[in-house]
Simulated scan of single mutants.
Amino acid sequence: MTALVIAALAAKGTSTIGGMYHLARGYGRLLLPNLAALGGDITTDAEACP
C-alpha cells in the first residue's frame, strides 16, 4: 500500500487509491499532513471508509 501512495505522489495528474484504511491502520506515523508535505494535495472520502 505504501508503494502505491509513493507512486501516486510521483505521478502526474490525479490518482485515486482505495482502501486507505489499511495504510492508516498499519502506518500510524504516515499521516495526511506528512504526505501533503511531500507535495500531495490529498483529500479523503469518509463515506468510502468502512
Rank of each mutant, 00 (worst) to 15 (best):
R29S: 07
P33F: 06
T14W: 01
G19K: 10
L31T: 14
A36R: 13
N34D: 14
L23R: 00
L23W: 15
L35V: 11
A24E: 13
L32V: 15
T43M: 01
H22C: 10
R29E: 14
M20E: 10
D45S: 06
L38H: 06
L32D: 11
L38T: 07
A36N: 14
A37T: 15
G28K: 15
D45N: 12
G28V: 06
L32T: 11
M20H: 08
T14S: 13
G40D: 05
M20N: 01
G19T: 08
L30G: 03
M20K: 02
A46H: 05
D41C: 00
D45F: 10
N34I: 10
H22V: 04
P33T: 02
A24V: 04
L32P: 01
G40M: 07
L35R: 01
L23C: 09
P33E: 00
G26D: 10
D41V: 05
T14P: 04
S15A: 11
L23M: 13
L31R: 15
S15P: 01
A37E: 12
A24C: 08
H22M: 04
G39Y: 00
L35W: 04
T44W: 09
R29H: 13
L23E: 11
E47I: 15
R29N: 14
T43L: 02
L38G: 12
G39C: 11
Y21T: 07
S15Y: 02
D41N: 08
D41M: 05
N34S: 12
L30W: 08
L32H: 03
G39S: 00
S15D: 02
I42W: 02
N34Q: 14
H22Q: 10
A37F: 02
A37R: 15
Y27V: 01
G26K: 14
G19R: 03
L32Y: 06
L38E: 09
T44Q: 13
L30K: 04
E47R: 04
S15W: 00
Y21W: 09
G28S: 15
L31E: 12
T16W: 05
H22G: 15
S15K: 06
L23F: 08
T14Y: 05
H22I: 07
A46P: 00
P33H: 06
L23T: 06
D41Q: 09
N34C: 09
N34K: 15
G39P: 01
Y21H: 04
G19C: 10
S15Q: 05
G26P: 00
A46G: 10
G28C: 08
T43G: 07
G26V: 04
P33V: 03
D41H: 09
T14M: 03
G39I: 03
R25L: 15
I42P: 07
A46T: 01
R25K: 13
